[in-house]
Design a protein around this nucleic acid. Sequence first.
DNA 1: ACATTAAGTGATT
DNA 2: AATCACTTAATGT
Length: 210
Amino acid sequence: MIQDFDKYYNYLFEDDLLNEIKQKGIYKSFKEDSIIIEIGDFIKSMPLLIKGAIKILREDENGDELVLYYLEKGDTCAMTLSCCMGETKSKIRAVAENDVELLLVPKENMNAWLSKYTSWQSFILLSYHNRMNELIDAIDTIAFLKMDERLFKYLKDKAMVTHNDVITTTHKKIADDLHTSRVVISRILKKLENDHKIKLNRNSIKVLEL
DNA sequence: ACATTAAGTGATT
DNA sequence: AATCACTTAATGT
């Protein structure tokens, strides 16, 4: 697991920093579908993803969800960055898309490292930059793409982060993620299958065009 | 065999 | 694109 960490982060940070992270970071693992961060949580440490993927989503007052973006190994969560800086609560929920391993860096350290290591500074800034772009992308998708394009993009994203073109899920779960109804998803999926973009099975969808 | 859950479909708004 | 009402198909007990 420490080896995995090196693999994804050694080109980002200098050795001193890598060692300090390994020393101060708290190793944690999450099973698929477990909630890593809940809306309203106070965040006192920031996660560095080593393995797996995390789904970041927003929820409205009725409990309806909407997926914003996915995080992969080598990524960190911009929400925790802003939460660690200020003393605010999380506005998003983070759910393990599959089995996840990560290192938690206490916020005291992440602040100290900002002035101590330039590589850390650029990592934080770059993370912000990436997340910002993903958010803009998410807004574009919601605002400008029709449901069928949104759905296909969702499937492709999902296949991408899990490194598997077969997605195991139900139409209902997809509908929840995209904030629409199951019937609509079923219909569009059927259409996508007719266009030979996907192959449908019970509880699984195979993405053909990646 | 029966109940439950997932998925397909026509009609309506 | 959403909702309803209903059907069909797959799966669990």
